[in-house]
């Protein structure tokens, strides 16, 4: 009932390893938020529809409200906190969301970003319709999605450009995909 059946788990989140003891019934979303203090992952419905809690687990987008923390033992997890570079340079998606006004209240945004991030890895040159399909597992109540589609489109271009310039400059120069958070 209490801590009696807790299990120790070790997981890597955004490149950092954590070991913690959790009750088996604790949802991964709660483990991330309450145990690890990573509150960027939001909880919007806890029944697998809204997508706000989307993270990537071993490279795939999953709804963290539909995974138990114990099931993430030994898993590699990425959350919105792990999108920007350690020096604060924004990921192209983050930059594009800012530029294109792809968010209002920002509550669904972390989940949308994580879905979009995986989507662009799989489909680097998507059409608008494909983008809409790619983010259709994430509900947004503020934007009407149009600016989100614009932003993902812009991020795809940025990523492709970066990739191209990286190829051109070989490995002599590190090209940062984003820039520092400054208003």
């Amino acid at each position: 009932m209490t801590q009696s059946n807790s299990k120790e788990i070790t997981l890597t989140v955004n490149g950092k390893q954590y070991t913690t003891s959790v009750e088996p019934r604790m949802l991964l979303s709660d483990v991330l938020r309450d145990e690890l203090g990573l509150t960027g992952t939001h909880v919007g419905c806890e029944h697998g529809i809204c997508g706000a809690c989307t993270i990537t687990m071993d490279g795939r987008p999953v709804r963290s409200c539909l995974v138990f923390g114990v099931q993430a033992n030994q898993a590699e997890i990425r959350t919105v906190e792990g999108l920007a570079e350690p020096d604060g340079s924004l990921h192209p998606l983050q930059e594009a969301f800012w530029e294109k006004h792809g968010l209002q209240c920002g509550f669904c945004t972390p989940g949308v970003l994580m879905s979009a991030c995986h989507f662009l890895e799989q489909n680097p040159n998507p059409s608008r319709e494909e983008i809409r399909e790619g983010i259709s597992g994430n509900l947004c109540r503020c934007t009407g999605y149009q600016n989100i589609v614009d932003a993902v489109e812009m991020a795809a271009e940025m990523l492709n450009k970066n990739k191209k310039s990286e190829e051109e400059t070989s490995d002599l120069e590190i090209v940062h995909s984003g820039r520092k958070v400054e208003v």
Partner: peptide
């Protein structure tokens, strides 16, 4: 089937 998040898992 569902959305990509569901199909991942």
């Amino acid at each position: 089937i569902g959305h990509s998040q569901i199909r991942s898992r």
